[in-house]
Design a protein around this nucleic acid. Structure first.
Lengths: 218, 218, 218, 218
DNA sequence: AATGAATGAGTTTTCATTCAT
DNA sequence: TATGAATGAAAACTCATTCAT
């Protein structure tokens, strides 16, 4: 279709133009591509192809490859933080709250492998884009505060140890799930088990919750 | 650390022929470069420069970039397996044995960030090189068997639960240390703490051992 | 002719976009380069230089060196087939028709040394690109059918033998001209005659026509 | 035939020194490699591998790749000239002599595809190595003189035309066989016949002899 | 004479980015 | 806003040739 032949009138040409949709498509494509190949391995051509748009629009809307990467990273972080904010643990008794928190961490990573992949690549580089991110504060997980409060309540109730460092516990909870997904391929290869199978995932979920709750006992 | 400041290998005597030394130098340089930049981001030129040898020797000795990557990966795996084989847990009482095992996992990852980095990159790709590796069996950690035996002994002695799956426990032990190092940069950024500092590392080591031992209690 | 003296394409207006002209220029340059140096000896850099375009456009428009070679080969074949289709032998008496056919074969090869050169290179490799060519049917010379019909008419008129295999005759006609041009340099060296000179070419043309017509007599 | 399957020379006794055998092996390997890939496409590594000797010996014995090519070319030419000198046509009646001559030309090319291949590559370049060859005189085929004498005898006997140019006839005889082998692949592809099959080759041989003898009739 | 490592100069190809329309 | 051609810089890889043993 020749664009030049279109009348100059400001009619909308059959929905062809939709900058926001274009940006969304690019961001989704970029997230997938960066997750699969990393920042260095990802291809701008391929991102545009996946998004079904012209490559130049990457530059038009985002500036360059790295800025697109940063945008993808921030969006992915925003996703998990939004999900975390939707958790309401204060209403639950401490042990149930903790179980929900651990289960959420596990489930979110299971459903968002792109978060794991992007974060791994970012960490290899020393997380420079995260450090520069506008709302670094916003990156701070609300879970840590929820966890702190839950541990306090549990400590007072005598069902958790009282001397726990919420940051250490938070890292441990994240670790038990994250590592399982992050290193699933190599673990599967080495153990000769398909650890990505639904049955194996369920077993791991139970183990992680159980392991954590036991570790926190007084 | 900026690229320009990366040290090239010490000048080897010019005209000296020592193909094994050349291969060793290339492998060491490749391990560092792949750890820092990943398979896609690593540069053959840079690897040769770091090794202090001519770039073409990569092709002469290893064939191509990917074969060099695979060689580096296998060597790094061989390194940890060798260290694991040097552990002797059978002589220790169960709790001490487990503490040593967890401590070893932590210390090895602390001292070998290249292992973490290479493994992360490999996992993003689905671990194709690991799956193809000649001695995949040899990749299987002896620690799992040591752990199984230790858990059995501890179970009989009544100091560990009796129904533990050694593979799950192994993964959890690895996770608690691995994730801390693998994601150290992003965790540091988000918590505003320098988790790579010696004091923070020591604290984490204590936490990991404590967390694990408590989780295994009956 | 030394490489340095090879003319680059006439300067195209800078900044002017004309992808079809670019492809035409690349194809023409490629044909000349491949004819002179063969597939292995040709240089992509040199092709781009001759075409007066950026080297990377070879990859943009054709994919890679070999695909460009195939495109050049197909175009050269298309050229001779088009010329052949323009021959109208049915209107002529058999002997005149045959003389025109032989003369055409001779003249075309004289004027299109690149056809000879590309075809020789292709044959050394076993003609893999020709076998893969899309319109292999279209490669089939219409001359064979024209020849068959001419031989039939001549046979009925009693001026040609009646038992001739058109394919054998076609190959012989092609051979008598093709070999002269294909091996002109070595023949010139060995006989100490400049067989590429106009006078020698004319003499050969007469000989080829005469030789062929006599060979077909009953 | 895939490259990998090309047989290397039979294992020579290790540490055995036999410079003449080495040179023979290199020359044979070079001839095959240059015939298959041309001067530009041939690889010194591959020639050494095929000869079963160290690559450096190419340089030790021949100087460089091009000198080796020249040596291979000269040897191949020496081969056909030697075979031609073994032909004795003077004892035969003219027609039988000519048939033997044509048959010989056909048979030699059939059995020595490397001659065709090397000569084609050499001709694309304008035969510079042939022109420089030491015994260019020795390259001159004795067949031309044999042919001249045979044509003279046949002319006097009234079975050949009397006004034939021996050089033109020589070229035509060579052409009818050479082109068939040189262009066998492309002709096979285009005609959809396997012209390299024994039956097709026999038919061509008969055709070439018949075609030539008829063309020379008065 | 023989070996295989080593090297310099290419050569093809890739890719982020910009230009012209 | 959108498109696809065009480009410069670099990257992987090749290869004839030389060096040290």
């Amino acid at each position: 279709m020749s664009r030049a032949s279109l009348p100059a009138a400001p009619e909308r040409p059959r929905g062809q133009r939709d900058p926001e949709a274009t940006q969304r498509a690019l961001l989704a494509a970029a997230t997938a591509e960066f997750a699969e190949k990393g920042l260095a391995g990802a291809r701008v051509d391929e991102i545009a192809r996946r998004a079904g748009v012209n490559k130049q629009l990457v530059y038009h809307h985002f500036g360059n490859k790295e800025a697109l990467y940063r945008a993808a990273l921030e969006q992915v972080y925003a996703g998990i933080r939004a999900a975390e904010r939707a958790l309401h643990l204060a209403d639950l008794p401490p042990e149930a709250a903790l179980e929900r928190l651990v289960g959420f961490s596990f489930d979110y990573l299971l459903e968002h492998p792109e978060f794991v992949a992007l974060l791994n690549d970012e960490n290899r580089l020393g997380a420079p884009h995260l450090r520069e991110a506008d709302g670094l504060q916003a990156m701070h997980s609300p879970l840590v505060d929820l966890l702190r409060e839950t541990l306090r309540r549990g400590g007072e109730a005598g069902i958790f140890r009282a001397d726990l460092d919420p940051v250490q516990v938070y890292i441990s909870i994240a670790a038990l799930s994250y590592f399982y997904f992050s290193n699933n391929s190599s673990l599967s290869a080495i153990f000769g088990r398909e650890l990505g199978a639904a049955r194996a995932v369920s077993a791991r979920r139970r183990h992680v919750i159980d392991f954590t709750l036991r570790a926190l006992r007084p």
